[in-house]
């Protein structure tokens, strides 16, 4: 294990500035079920990647591997120079730098919006409370809900909750943001307000990996679109090419289904 760490570190030294996530020949199984098959993916700094694919294709599992909410069994994942192994220090380090937004928001219902946002800065980054609250208010302003700071999550609409969840991740000042289907639990009229926040965020140069079915978002924001099916990456390309000229049969089928309904 330490051997591969060594190699990973050396490689990082050569193109450390460019590549922030390197997934190399990664496999994952749920029991007998092979969910992720030979995933190879390099993400450069500031890159916006949209991952799409039919349900059950392993796209959520893949991005959950990046902050080790799921363990992979084979291959390496190196995030910002840190290889993900069983080493708890490394896991903590990666999680400090990687923000994640969930499909079902996962806000803490017993804490106010502001407390949700300050919790991690205070307890993980050891930021003083006042400073943490200041930062939190900044980000809440950026997602345009500073006036809800003292309400509880249950009092907000779905769209507002998701924006709080985004602000909560941003408060840790992450270098990488993972979005796991952030809009699929929302009503149509709320999707836009969340996407707007995400688009604005993208323009600021943060690295983003986003699992979503919002093809409009992919077209405007993504540097690269990845299509997954059956646990493997079928195709990856720049959005223009991806949508206009898909290479693979399965991609074509998927796109025709998702764009024609």
């Amino acid at each position: 294990m330490s051997n591969s760490t060594q190699i990973g570190t050396e490689q990082m030294n050569t193109d450390q500035d460019n590549i922030v996530i390197r997934i190399n020949q990664m496999h994952k199984w749920y029991g007998q079920f092979h969910v992720l098959k030979d995933i190879n993916l390099d993400v450069t700094r500031g890159e916006k990647i949209v991952i799409c694919g039919p349900s059950g294709s392993g796209k959520s599992t893949m991005i959950r591997c990046i902050n080790r909410l799921e363990e992979h069994q084979k291959g390496d994942i190196i995030v910002d120079g840190t290889e993900l192994t069983n080493d708890l220090k490394n896991i903590e380090a990666v999680r400090r730098e990687v923000g994640m937004v969930f499909q079902h928001f996962n806000l803490f219902p017993h804490l106010t919006v502001l407390e949700n946002c300050t919790l991690a800065p205070i307890w993980v980054r050891k930021t003083p409370r006042l400073e943490a609250e200041e930062i939190a208010m900044q980000y809440l302003e950026r997602v345009k809900i500073p006036d809800q700071a003292n309400k509880f999550p249950g009092q907000l609409s779905g769209g507002q909750q998701q924006r709080v969840a985004i602000a909560r991740s941003l408060c840790m000042k992450p270098r990488i943001m993972l979005f796991d289907e952030p809009t699929s639990a929302l009503d149509p009229e709320m999707i836009k307000e969340v996407l707007d926040v995400m688009i604005e965020l993208a323009s600021e140069g943060i690295t983003m990996l986003c699992v979503t079915h919002e093809m409009g978002f992919a077209k405007t924001v993504a540097d690269r679109v990845i299509f997954m099916d059956g646990g493997e990456i079928i195709e990856e390309n720049v959005p223009q090419e991806f949508f206009d000229n898909p290479q693979h049969e399965r991609t074509k089928l998927f796109l025709s289904q998702i764009l024609n309904h």
Binding site: T5, Q16, D80, T85
Partner: peptide, 25 residues
């Protein structure tokens, strides 16, 4: 944060054992 990673192989053995998820458990 990259610095900590680079110094990782030099961390002493006790700290490495303690910070490995499986050995810690």
């Amino acid at each position: 944060m990259s610095e900590t990673t680079l110094s990782q192989p030099q961390r002493n053995i006790v700290s490495r054992l303690w910070n490995d998820k499986e050995t810690r458990s």
